[in-house]
């Protein structure tokens, strides 16, 4: 009975949403903001990836709020799993292939992570995606060697520095009489690495913050003792 009502609820809700959605105009968005941003983004921010100029330029405060949500999640997960646990005795070490494969992948993952962060204003990618890859690079050795430790002090130092510099870049823009987080500095040449003003710097801060946060989160999860 309970299963039947649950299924009826989910199916009915899906049907209702579908019958609403099917009446929307598909393929011709009615929102005007997208078109307005597209026509101005190149001149105003100088970033060829318009999603980046939306994330960091037009909706920069949103991104700041999102970073604080991520920080809150990571901090509370650390609080919940807080007590020092070590899995050194409970998990068997990885084999030869796993350990050396992890060591070999580490520099490659670092390279591609930073590549994606630095080219976030030119091509698909950016701080969030690159940050996740950086976190994976630091988490991989932990999987291969269960006894290894990430230095949480360093991670929180990187995280705090990145978050503070994100806010600081925004405040400098305010101090120069512009809006908070408004892009500054050189914007002239379109499509080169050093363009789009402060957007690459902001994305670097986002990438470091996301990477450090996810790495510390994952290592907290991995180091929690499984005393089943």
């Amino acid at each position: 009975m309970r299963n039947l009502t649950g299924l009826l609820f989910a199916g009915g809700l899906g049907f209702m949403l579908l019958s609403i959605a099917i009446n929307l105009d598909f393929g011709t968005p009615t929102m005007l903001i997208g078109g307005a941003i597209q026509s101005k983004a190149l001149q105003e921010t100088g970033a060829t990836n318009i999603v980046t100029s939306v994330v960091l330029g037009y909706r920069g405060i949103d991104t700041l709020g999102e970073l604080s949500i991520l920080f809150a999640a990571a901090a509370s997960a650390g609080l919940i799993l807080g007590r020092r646990h070590t899995t050194a005795g409970t998990q068997t070490a990885g084999g030869f292939v796993l350990r050396h494969g992890g060591s070999m992948l580490f520099p490659l993952l670092m390279t591609i992570g930073f590549y994606i962060i630095f080219h976030g204003h030119l091509s698909p990618g950016g701080g969030f995606q690159g940050g996740v890859i950086l976190a994976a690079a630091f988490f991989l050795p932990l999987l291969a060697r269960p006894g290894a430790q990430l230095h949480h002090g360093t991670l929180s130092l990187i995280e705090g520095f990145a978050g503070a510099s994100f806010v600081l870049i925004g405040l400098i823009a305010l101090q120069q009489g512009k809006a908070f987080l408004q892009p500054m500095l050189i914007q002239d040449t379109l499509g080169v690495l050093l363009s789009a003003g402060t957007l690459p710097l902001l994305y670097l801060a986002v990438g470091l913050k996301v990477g450090a946060e996810l790495a510390s989160l994952l290592s907290h999860l991995a180091q929690t003792e499984s005393d089943v």
């Binding site: 929102m31 997208g34 100029s53 939306v54 950016g126």
Partner: peptide, 12 residues
């Protein structure tokens, strides 16, 4: 181009 605003929202 497709609307970039929903893509940025999904990214976050």
């Amino acid at each position: 181009m497709v609307d970039p605003v929903p893509q940025a929202m999904v990214l976050t």
